[in-house]
Amino acid sequence: MLNKQFKRQIFISSFILVLMFILSLYDYLVHEHHHAFSFENLPFFTGLIGIIGALFITVVVKILGKIVSRGEDSYERYYTS
């Protein structure tokens, strides 16, 4: 699954992600927060949302694509973009 074309980008984004993980851990340990929801108390919560959200969208898009995607010509009769 690892895309060789994006090796460098994967490395950079992983590095930023690890950095953010450390910074958010620092935030979690040092600052006191009063979150509205209990799940927000998880350390690195937004990073997890990013990972889960992106994976969720990928899966939904793949499944939805199987259902709704058509060849460009097949839609020609409706004269749309």
């Binding site: 980008q9 990013g50 994976l55």
Partner: peptide, 12 residues
């Protein structure tokens, strides 16, 4: 954090 995690998943 949100966007770096998203970027990583996109590249994968």
């Amino acid at each position: 954090s949100l966007f770096s995690a998203t970027a990583l998943i996109y590249f994968l």
